[in-house]
Amino acid sequence: MLGGLYALFAMGLALMFGVMRLVNIAHGDCIVLAAFVAIGLALALPGAGPALLLAMVLPLMFAAGYVLQRGVLNRTLGKDILPPLLVTFGFSVILQNVLLEIFSADPRSLSAGGLESLSFALPGGIAVGWLPLVTFVAALALALALELLFARTRLGRAFRATSDDPEAAQLQGIDHRHVYALATALAFAVITVAGIFLALRTTVAPSDGPAYLLYAFEAVIIGGLGSFWGTLAGGLVLGVAQAIGFRLDPGWGILVGHLAFLVMLMLRPQGLFPRTRD
């Protein structure tokens, strides 16, 4: 069920790109950051479970995302696609080095008191791990929540309208700077969930970010732009592809994932479930 984790990775990226056409090159590093903030808090508060850690880190990351967008990234948005890429790339480098300074290069992880290795048996002799299942359910719930947010709420309408035509959106009384900042804040909240599930599942090191950006990006493209269900599907497809690859040969796991991505680009570049706009 690696797919659930990849879907979580991808959703924050899809959110920022969907609302602002902004590709956050530091996306993977932000997931790692969230994981390390949780790990740091866990070191300071031994006995704090992952749910409590999530509750503590979420508001911090939400606020950080809002401030980052409002203070820095809003200034990079315009006709040129380069400034946001350059700024977030720089941010990625800074993040990795700051984490390296604080935590050193040792990989660390979070503990859920044994939950992460528990499994239960399904009929037919299949054992399902608790953590992968919870991860998948979280990804499902988040996809549902984001779809409902975008489709049914005033904020979601503002997101869609601002994404279509920021100038016309301003003419309706929408403060686009605030809307963009909320989108990034929300993306950072999703990133936090992804980061904590990541740290529960495996060890995290400061330099792991770029690989996760790649998986997130592939999942978004495979799934298709414009729909969070698509992003969920893309994450699952990528996860399954990698799992198949790992089965064939431990060294091939990641490669098969990349191959699946390339095949998708060749056969159906718009992804599995694109929602065409304009």
Binding site: D165, A168, Q172, G173, I174
Partner: peptide
């Protein structure tokens, strides 16, 4: 605005509703 500039990602009714965003 000139050219109408309705939002393609919103339905007609949602386009109307977004007009009331300022409250």
């Amino acid at each position: 605005p000139e050219g109408r500039r309705l939002f393609p990602s919103l339905s007609v009714e949602e386009n109307l509703m977004i007009g009331a965003h300022a409250g």
